[in-house]
Design a protein around this nucleic acid. Structure first.
Lengths: 217, 217
DNA sequence: GACAGCATGTAATGAGTTACATGATTAA
DNA sequence: TTAATCATGTAACTCATTACATGCTGTC
């Protein structure tokens, strides 16, 4: 066990609250991290075993009928490792968004393909907003699973809701643009494109871009 | 060669413009896709070879001194595969953002660790905004590498700039919140957190949330 | 008593990364 | 002529995924 991965720390973090069975951990990974650190269920089983080998968690075996089940809890070494990691700077900053790859390549496909991609993105973003609504309601009503950490979870909710809204709005306005095209070719679309590029947010603050401005194109 | 990956299609897409050497392809991957489909340089060499084995691209070997160099170009089968893929629905929608994992776990670390994570995120987002500024300037001046596809690239620029702005603004306002804390514990921070959660965007449109509203908390 | 769904994993495989190696080119 | 940088890969490894296997539990 040379170094732990971000996934390892996500698991350690869940175990820092209380002991979980492997199955519960897998469910928790999906519920808590899927929108910003998605991992397959089966990886959890393997990873928590690595953590046990390294002494950061310990597993207690019990039985359900003839079947064994392991409940894991964090050790003090595990807590220490978690605390140390939290003090290091983050490494990964980025998206992984296939839809954007498709947009980059859109010129080689059909206009309808692009519209489909955008519609799909909008639908996914709206699903995310609905999930966010439920999570927000749970916190506001005081019975969210992470209620004891509301003050930090609020930062997450803020980011994820804002992101989902951004994705939805972008998909919607992009669909509106593309819907006005009659094909995927460039001809006759440059000036609108350049206007969009000019109006995109830059490093300087643009408090009310996209507001009505004199049409000078 | 059973199935191609998104990375394969990203490469095919670059080759759809013109032939490239493996080195140029690797540079292009970094330049064009790093912000939404980041992949290691070495993967490009392996992947383009797979594409050649499958007949989707063909490589032409030449020499620079004693050293060989391969220039790849797309075949008609490759173009066809690309077009077909563009007609399928996208699969992946999501972030992969370590910083958010750290926020989720922040309660187990120190307040300064959280501030560091947020500052790092803000710096990265600002770097991204600077890059976006350069890209936008290149398009507006008419000499961007992808100028012939401005009309679709404008959609990308729109998304990425908006995303970078979102990340920066979130990091900034979150730092402001956390700066007001004296420790990482929950005590005394609930009501502000709940206010933040309530004000986060939901499925319904909130055109001017976060505007001044009567303080009733 | 069977069928659906929950629970608990293992096996095989692959996509992707880091580290290494080394030739060519350019500037000091 | 050395050092830095650009160019062109290969090798070893691991993180992660998909597919499979199988036991338990409730219900019709």
């Amino acid at each position: 066990m040379s170094t732990l991965t971000t996934t390892s720390y996500a698991l350690l973090g869940q175990l820092a609250y209380r002991p979980w069975t492997a199955y519960e951990l897998a469910k928790g990974m999906a519920w808590n991290f899927d929108y910003f650190w998605p991992r397959a269920r089966s990886l959890v089983y393997a990873e928590v075993k690595r953590l046990a080998d390294a002494g950061f968690v310990k597993g207690e075996m019990s039985f359900v009928g003839a079947r064994s089940r392991t409940t894991y809890s964090i050790t003090s070494e595990g807590m220490q490792a978690l605390r140390q990691w939290l003090a290091t700077p983050p490494t990964v900053f980025g998206l992984e968004m296939e839809a954007l790859v498709r947009v980059w390549l859109a010129g080689f496909g059909r206009r309808e393909d692009l519209l489909q991609t955008l519609a799909h993105t909008q639908a996914e973003a709206e699903k995310m907003l609905r999930v966010a609504d439920e999570v927000r309601a749970a916190y506001l009503e005081g019975h969210a699973p992470g209620q004891s950490h509301v003050h930090v979870r609020a930062l997450l909710v803020d980011f994820l809701s804002s992101y989902a809204q951004l994705a939805r709005d972008w998909a919607a306005r992009s669909q509106a643009s593309v819907a006005r095209w009659r094909d995927i070719d460039r001809a006759g679309k440059e000036s609108a494109a350049l206007r969009k590029i000019r109006d995109a947010p830059g490093l300087a603050a643009h408090p009310d871009r996209r507001s009505k401005r004199p049409r000078t194109g």
